[in-house]
Protein backbone atom coordinates (compact mmCIF):
# COMPACT_ATOMS: atom_id res chain seq x y z
CA UNK A 1 0.00 0.00 0.00
CA UNK A 2 1.45 3.31 -1.02
CA UNK A 3 -0.49 5.41 1.46
CA UNK A 4 -1.48 4.09 4.85
CA UNK A 5 -5.20 4.57 5.12
CA UNK A 6 -6.55 5.66 8.48
CA UNK A 7 -7.04 2.79 10.88
CA UNK A 8 -7.72 1.98 14.52
CA UNK A 9 -6.37 -0.68 16.81
CA UNK A 10 -9.25 -2.70 18.20
CA UNK A 11 -10.03 -6.06 19.75
CA UNK A 12 -12.10 -8.72 18.03
CA UNK A 13 -15.17 -7.78 20.08
CA UNK A 14 -14.74 -4.09 19.24
CA UNK A 15 -14.44 -5.04 15.57
CA UNK A 16 -17.80 -6.86 15.73
CA UNK A 17 -19.40 -3.91 17.45
CA UNK A 18 -18.03 -1.25 15.12
CA UNK A 19 -18.83 -3.24 11.97
CA UNK A 20 -22.42 -3.78 13.15
CA UNK A 21 -22.72 -0.11 14.02
CA UNK A 22 -21.48 0.94 10.58
CA UNK A 23 -23.90 -1.50 8.93
CA UNK A 24 -26.84 -0.02 10.84
CA UNK A 25 -25.75 3.49 9.90
CA UNK A 26 -25.18 2.58 6.26
CA UNK A 27 -28.36 0.64 5.55
CA UNK A 28 -31.64 1.24 7.31
CA UNK A 29 -32.81 -2.21 6.18
CA UNK A 30 -30.27 -3.72 8.56
CA UNK A 31 -31.80 -4.93 11.81
CA UNK A 32 -30.42 -6.83 14.78
CA UNK A 33 -32.45 -9.35 16.73
CA UNK A 34 -31.60 -11.67 19.57
CA UNK A 35 -31.63 -12.27 23.29
CA UNK A 36 -30.47 -9.25 25.33
CA UNK A 37 -29.30 -7.30 22.27
CA UNK A 38 -31.51 -4.32 23.19
CA UNK A 39 -31.60 -2.88 26.67
CA UNK A 40 -28.85 -5.14 27.94
CA UNK A 41 -26.67 -4.29 24.95
CA UNK A 42 -25.61 -7.95 24.41
CA UNK A 43 -23.80 -10.05 27.03
CA UNK A 44 -20.44 -8.94 25.64
CA UNK A 45 -21.72 -5.33 25.32
CA UNK A 46 -21.46 -5.57 21.54
CA UNK A 47 -24.74 -3.72 20.94
CA UNK A 48 -24.56 -1.40 23.95
CA UNK A 49 -26.27 1.88 23.13
CA UNK A 50 -27.63 0.62 19.81
CA UNK A 51 -31.26 0.54 20.92
CA UNK A 52 -31.05 4.18 22.06
CA UNK A 53 -29.62 5.26 18.72
CA UNK A 54 -31.49 3.03 16.29
CA UNK A 55 -34.68 2.32 18.22
CA UNK A 56 -36.49 -0.88 19.24
CA UNK A 57 -37.76 -1.53 15.71
CA UNK A 58 -34.22 -2.19 14.45
CA UNK A 59 -32.66 -3.53 17.65
CA UNK A 60 -35.09 -6.22 18.70
CA UNK A 61 -34.99 -7.95 22.07
CA UNK A 62 -36.42 -11.42 21.63
CA UNK A 63 -37.67 -14.06 24.04
CA UNK A 64 -35.43 -17.02 24.82
CA UNK A 65 -36.60 -18.82 21.69
CA UNK A 66 -33.81 -19.46 19.17
CA UNK A 67 -36.09 -21.10 16.59
CA UNK A 68 -38.17 -17.93 16.57
CA UNK A 69 -35.15 -15.65 16.31
CA UNK A 70 -33.92 -17.39 13.17
CA UNK A 71 -37.43 -18.06 11.82
CA UNK A 72 -38.39 -14.38 12.09
CA UNK A 73 -35.08 -13.40 10.52
CA UNK A 74 -35.75 -15.75 7.59
CA UNK A 75 -39.09 -14.00 7.01
CA UNK A 76 -37.52 -10.56 7.28
CA UNK A 77 -34.79 -11.52 4.81
CA UNK A 78 -37.23 -12.96 2.31
CA UNK A 79 -39.18 -9.72 2.41
CA UNK A 80 -36.22 -7.44 1.82
CA UNK A 81 -34.69 -6.60 5.19
CA UNK A 82 -31.12 -7.41 6.14
CA UNK A 83 -31.52 -9.17 9.47
CA UNK A 84 -28.51 -9.90 11.64
CA UNK A 85 -29.73 -12.51 14.08
CA UNK A 86 -27.78 -13.28 17.19
CA UNK A 87 -27.68 -16.58 19.02
CA UNK A 88 -26.34 -15.59 22.43
CA UNK A 89 -24.05 -18.62 22.63
CA UNK A 90 -23.52 -21.25 19.94
CA UNK A 91 -24.42 -23.83 22.58
CA UNK A 92 -28.04 -22.57 22.30
CA UNK A 93 -28.30 -22.82 18.52
CA UNK A 94 -29.82 -26.33 18.44
CA UNK A 95 -33.49 -25.24 18.65
CA UNK A 96 -32.86 -23.11 15.54
CA UNK A 97 -31.40 -26.02 13.57
CA UNK A 98 -34.54 -26.56 11.54
CA UNK A 99 -34.87 -22.87 10.70
CA UNK A 100 -31.25 -22.66 9.61
CA UNK A 101 -30.91 -25.96 7.78
CA UNK A 102 -34.49 -26.64 6.73
CA UNK A 103 -35.52 -23.06 5.87
CA UNK A 104 -32.74 -20.49 5.46
CA UNK A 105 -30.34 -22.71 3.56
CA UNK A 106 -33.04 -23.96 1.19
CA UNK A 107 -34.98 -20.77 0.47
CA UNK A 108 -33.30 -19.88 -2.80
CA UNK A 109 -33.53 -23.46 -4.08
CA UNK A 110 -37.09 -24.07 -2.94
CA UNK A 111 -38.38 -20.84 -4.56
CA UNK A 112 -36.45 -21.40 -7.75
CA UNK A 113 -34.53 -18.22 -7.06
CA UNK A 114 -37.58 -16.07 -6.53
CA UNK A 115 -36.69 -15.57 -2.88
CA UNK A 116 -33.29 -15.39 -1.32
CA UNK A 117 -32.40 -15.26 2.30
CA UNK A 118 -29.82 -12.49 2.84
CA UNK A 119 -29.29 -12.94 6.57
CA UNK A 120 -26.45 -13.30 9.01
CA UNK A 121 -26.58 -15.48 12.09
CA UNK A 122 -23.86 -14.37 14.48
CA UNK A 123 -22.91 -16.46 17.43
CA UNK A 124 -19.98 -16.67 19.88
CA UNK A 125 -18.50 -20.15 20.08
CA UNK A 126 -15.49 -22.00 21.45
CA UNK A 127 -13.83 -22.78 24.74
CA UNK A 128 -10.96 -21.76 26.92
CA UNK A 129 -13.00 -19.29 28.94
CA UNK A 130 -14.21 -21.61 31.71
CA UNK A 131 -17.53 -21.78 29.91
CA UNK A 132 -18.04 -25.44 30.73
CA UNK A 133 -20.86 -27.51 29.33
CA UNK A 134 -23.10 -24.82 27.84
CA UNK A 135 -20.78 -21.97 26.85
CA UNK A 136 -17.92 -23.74 25.05
CA UNK A 137 -19.02 -25.66 21.99
CA UNK A 138 -17.84 -25.49 18.43
CA UNK A 139 -20.77 -26.01 16.06
CA UNK A 140 -19.25 -25.62 12.61
CA UNK A 141 -19.25 -29.33 11.80
CA UNK A 142 -22.98 -29.57 12.55
CA UNK A 143 -23.66 -27.07 9.80
CA UNK A 144 -20.87 -27.36 7.25
CA UNK A 145 -22.48 -30.42 5.74
CA UNK A 146 -25.37 -28.27 4.57
CA UNK A 147 -25.36 -26.96 1.00
CA UNK A 148 -26.78 -23.46 0.78
CA UNK A 149 -25.21 -22.24 3.97
CA UNK A 150 -22.00 -20.29 4.24
CA UNK A 151 -19.91 -20.56 7.40
CA UNK A 152 -17.34 -18.00 8.40
CA UNK A 153 -14.86 -18.25 11.30
CA UNK A 154 -12.68 -15.13 11.33
CA UNK A 155 -9.85 -14.87 13.83
CA UNK A 156 -8.63 -11.27 13.66
CA UNK A 157 -10.32 -7.85 13.99
CA UNK A 158 -9.57 -7.02 10.37
CA UNK A 159 -10.99 -10.31 9.12
CA UNK A 160 -14.04 -9.85 11.33
CA UNK A 161 -14.77 -6.48 9.74
CA UNK A 162 -14.13 -7.62 6.18
CA UNK A 163 -16.03 -10.87 6.51
CA UNK A 164 -18.95 -9.48 8.51
CA UNK A 165 -19.41 -6.83 5.83
CA UNK A 166 -19.25 -9.55 3.18
CA UNK A 167 -21.75 -11.66 5.14
CA UNK A 168 -24.21 -8.78 5.46
CA UNK A 169 -23.82 -8.06 1.74
CA UNK A 170 -24.25 -11.71 0.78
CA UNK A 171 -27.61 -12.60 -0.80
CA UNK A 172 -27.71 -15.95 1.05
CA UNK A 173 -27.56 -16.99 4.70
CA UNK A 174 -24.21 -16.84 6.45
CA UNK A 175 -23.43 -18.41 9.80
CA UNK A 176 -20.90 -16.08 11.41
CA UNK A 177 -18.91 -17.75 14.19
CA UNK A 178 -16.94 -15.61 16.63
CA UNK A 179 -14.47 -17.35 18.92
CA UNK A 180 -15.22 -15.82 22.30
CA UNK A 181 -11.74 -16.48 23.71
CA UNK A 182 -10.35 -14.21 20.99
CA UNK A 183 -12.85 -11.43 21.77
CA UNK A 184 -10.54 -9.49 24.04
CA UNK A 185 -7.36 -11.54 23.50
CA UNK A 186 -6.73 -10.48 19.92
CA UNK A 187 -6.04 -6.86 19.10
CA UNK A 188 -4.94 -5.45 15.77
CA UNK A 189 -5.16 -2.61 13.30
CA UNK A 190 -8.42 -2.27 11.37
CA UNK A 191 -8.86 0.16 8.48
CA UNK A 192 -11.57 2.77 9.07
CA UNK A 193 -12.92 2.54 5.55
CA UNK A 194 -15.56 0.07 4.41
CA UNK A 195 -14.14 -3.11 2.91
CA UNK A 196 -15.05 -6.73 2.45
CA UNK A 197 -13.00 -9.93 2.43
CA UNK A 198 -14.36 -12.58 0.08
CA UNK A 199 -16.08 -15.46 1.86
CA UNK A 200 -14.25 -18.67 1.03
CA UNK A 201 -10.79 -17.15 0.85
CA UNK A 202 -8.16 -18.40 3.28
CA UNK A 203 -5.25 -16.37 4.57
CA UNK A 204 -1.67 -17.67 4.57
CA UNK A 205 -0.39 -16.18 7.79
CA UNK A 206 3.10 -17.60 7.47
CA UNK A 207 4.83 -19.06 4.48
CA UNK A 208 6.88 -22.20 4.89
CA UNK A 209 8.25 -25.14 3.01
CA UNK A 210 8.23 -28.22 5.21
CA UNK A 211 4.69 -28.57 6.53
CA UNK A 212 1.27 -27.07 5.92
CA UNK A 213 -0.83 -26.35 8.98
CA UNK A 214 -4.50 -25.52 8.42
CA UNK A 215 -6.46 -24.01 11.26
CA UNK A 216 -9.02 -21.36 12.09
CA UNK A 217 -10.45 -19.40 14.99
CA UNK A 218 -8.46 -19.32 18.21
CA UNK A 219 -6.12 -22.02 16.98
CA UNK A 220 -5.19 -19.97 13.94
CA UNK A 221 -3.35 -17.77 16.42
CA UNK A 222 -1.86 -20.57 18.47
CA UNK A 223 -0.70 -22.54 15.44
CA UNK A 224 0.98 -19.43 14.07
CA UNK A 225 2.70 -18.90 17.40
CA UNK A 226 3.87 -22.51 17.41
CA UNK A 227 5.12 -22.23 13.84
CA UNK A 228 7.07 -19.09 14.73
CA UNK A 229 8.64 -20.93 17.63
CA UNK A 230 9.76 -23.64 15.20
CA UNK A 231 11.37 -21.06 12.99
CA UNK A 232 14.03 -20.67 15.67
CA UNK A 233 14.74 -24.37 15.21
CA UNK A 234 15.09 -23.82 11.46
CA UNK A 235 11.86 -25.67 10.76
CA UNK A 236 9.73 -24.04 8.11
CA UNK A 237 5.98 -24.33 8.56
CA UNK A 238 3.30 -22.77 6.39
CA UNK A 239 0.24 -21.68 8.35
CA UNK A 240 -3.16 -21.21 6.77
CA UNK A 241 -6.02 -19.48 8.57
CA UNK A 242 -9.07 -20.84 6.77
CA UNK A 243 -11.36 -17.92 7.76
CA UNK A 244 -14.26 -19.66 6.01
CA UNK A 245 -15.07 -23.34 6.43
CA UNK A 246 -17.71 -23.31 3.73
CA UNK A 247 -17.08 -22.53 0.99
CA UNK A 248 -13.58 -23.75 1.71
CA UNK A 249 -10.48 -22.37 -0.01
CA UNK A 250 -9.46 -25.66 -1.56
CA UNK A 251 -6.82 -24.10 -3.78
CA UNK A 252 -4.98 -22.47 -0.90
CA UNK A 253 -4.75 -25.82 0.86
CA UNK A 254 -3.84 -27.83 -2.24
CA UNK A 255 -1.24 -25.34 -3.45
CA UNK A 256 0.38 -25.36 -0.06
CA UNK A 257 0.40 -29.15 0.19
CA UNK A 258 1.93 -29.35 -3.28
CA UNK A 259 4.74 -27.24 -1.89
CA UNK A 260 5.28 -28.80 1.53
CA UNK A 261 4.03 -32.37 0.94
CA UNK A 262 2.76 -32.61 4.51
CA UNK A 263 -0.51 -31.55 6.10
CA UNK A 264 -1.57 -31.01 9.68
CA UNK A 265 -5.06 -29.78 10.50
CA UNK A 266 -5.70 -28.25 13.89
CA UNK A 267 -9.16 -27.45 15.17
CA UNK A 268 -10.98 -27.16 18.45
CA UNK A 269 -14.10 -28.97 17.31
CA UNK A 270 -13.84 -32.70 17.93
CA UNK A 271 -12.12 -34.84 15.35
CA UNK A 272 -14.77 -37.30 14.20
CA UNK A 273 -16.49 -35.91 11.13
CA UNK A 274 -15.02 -32.48 11.78
CA UNK A 275 -13.81 -29.90 9.29
CA UNK A 276 -10.44 -31.68 9.30
CA UNK A 277 -12.10 -34.82 8.00
CA UNK A 278 -13.35 -32.95 4.95
CA UNK A 279 -9.96 -31.35 4.34
CA UNK A 280 -8.21 -34.73 4.67
CA UNK A 281 -10.58 -36.36 2.24
CA UNK A 282 -10.28 -33.49 -0.21
CA UNK A 283 -6.46 -33.59 -0.15
CA UNK A 284 -6.44 -37.38 -0.43
CA UNK A 285 -8.68 -37.10 -3.48
CA UNK A 286 -6.91 -34.23 -5.15
CA UNK A 287 -3.29 -34.47 -4.09
CA UNK A 288 -2.48 -37.96 -2.85
CA UNK A 289 0.72 -38.12 -4.85
CA UNK A 290 1.96 -34.93 -3.23
CA UNK A 291 1.83 -36.40 0.25
CA UNK A 292 5.06 -37.37 1.94
CA UNK A 293 3.46 -38.20 5.27
CA UNK A 294 0.07 -39.32 6.53
CA UNK A 295 -2.28 -36.39 7.03
CA UNK A 296 -2.68 -35.64 10.72
CA UNK A 297 -5.52 -33.98 12.61
CA UNK A 298 -4.95 -32.41 15.97
CA UNK A 299 -8.40 -31.85 17.47
CA UNK A 300 -10.13 -31.67 20.79
CA UNK A 301 -11.39 -34.93 22.21
CA UNK A 302 -14.56 -36.72 21.17
CA UNK A 303 -16.39 -36.20 24.44
CA UNK A 304 -19.85 -34.68 24.93
CA UNK A 305 -18.66 -31.49 26.61
CA UNK A 306 -15.76 -29.54 28.01
CA UNK A 307 -15.29 -29.82 31.78
CA UNK A 308 -15.59 -26.76 33.99
CA UNK A 309 -12.66 -27.60 36.27
CA UNK A 310 -9.53 -25.86 35.01
CA UNK A 311 -7.47 -29.06 34.66
CA UNK A 312 -10.28 -30.58 32.63
CA UNK A 313 -10.54 -27.54 30.39
CA UNK A 314 -6.77 -27.47 29.92
CA UNK A 315 -6.78 -31.15 29.12
CA UNK A 316 -9.50 -30.60 26.56
CA UNK A 317 -8.00 -27.60 24.80
CA UNK A 318 -4.82 -27.92 22.70
CA UNK A 319 -1.84 -26.01 24.02
CA UNK A 320 0.58 -24.16 21.76
CA UNK A 321 3.32 -26.48 22.98
CA UNK A 322 1.37 -29.52 21.86
CA UNK A 323 0.88 -27.92 18.47
CA UNK A 324 4.62 -27.24 18.20
CA UNK A 325 5.39 -30.79 19.23
CA UNK A 326 3.06 -32.21 16.59
CA UNK A 327 4.54 -29.90 13.93
CA UNK A 328 8.06 -30.94 14.86
CA UNK A 329 7.20 -34.62 14.58
CA UNK A 330 5.65 -34.09 11.18
CA UNK A 331 8.52 -32.05 9.78
CA UNK A 332 10.96 -34.70 10.97
CA UNK A 333 8.89 -37.62 9.71
Amino acid sequence: MAVASPSKVMTNVEAVRSTLYDALKRDDKAVILGEDVGNRGNVFLITKGFIEEFGPERIIDTPIAEASIVGIAVGMAMEGLRPIAEIQFADFIYPAFNQIVGEAAKTRYRSNGEYTCPMVIRTPYGGGVRGALSHSVSVEALFYHVPGLKIVVPSTPRDIKGLLNAAIEDPDPVLFLEHKRTYRLIKDDVPDEYFTIPIGKANITQEGTQLTVVSYGLYAHQSLEAARKLQDENLSVEVIDLRSVRPMDRNAILDSVRKTHKLLIIHEDNKFGGVGAEISAMVAEEALFELDAPIRRLCCPDVPAMGYALPLEEEYMISTDRMAEEMRAMVRF
Partner: peptide
Protein backbone atom coordinates in the same frame (compact mmCIF):
# COMPACT_ATOMS: atom_id res chain seq x y z
CA UNK B 1 5.03 -42.17 0.71
CA UNK B 2 2.94 -41.38 -2.36
CA UNK B 3 4.99 -38.24 -2.97
CA UNK B 4 8.26 -40.16 -2.78
CA UNK B 5 6.95 -42.75 -5.23
CA UNK B 6 5.80 -40.12 -7.67
CA UNK B 7 8.96 -38.01 -7.45
CA UNK B 8 11.20 -41.07 -7.78
CA UNK B 9 9.29 -42.08 -10.87
CA UNK B 10 9.39 -38.61 -12.39
CA UNK B 11 13.09 -38.12 -11.74
CA UNK B 12 14.09 -41.71 -12.52
CA UNK B 13 15.55 -42.27 -9.11
CA UNK B 14 15.81 -45.60 -7.39
CA UNK B 15 14.70 -45.06 -3.82
CA UNK B 16 16.70 -48.04 -2.62
CA UNK B 17 19.86 -46.14 -3.50
CA UNK B 18 19.05 -43.15 -1.31
CA UNK B 19 20.01 -42.55 2.24
CA UNK B 20 16.88 -41.39 4.03
CA UNK B 21 16.95 -38.33 6.25
CA UNK B 22 13.50 -38.92 7.74
CA UNK B 23 12.39 -40.78 10.79
CA UNK B 24 14.11 -44.17 11.09
CA UNK B 25 15.98 -43.52 7.88
CA UNK B 26 12.83 -43.02 5.84
CA UNK B 27 13.47 -41.59 2.39
CA UNK B 28 11.57 -38.29 2.25
CA UNK B 29 10.29 -36.31 -0.72
CA UNK B 30 13.09 -33.83 -0.07
Amino acid sequence: SPAVRRLAREHHIDIAQLKGSGQNGRVTAD
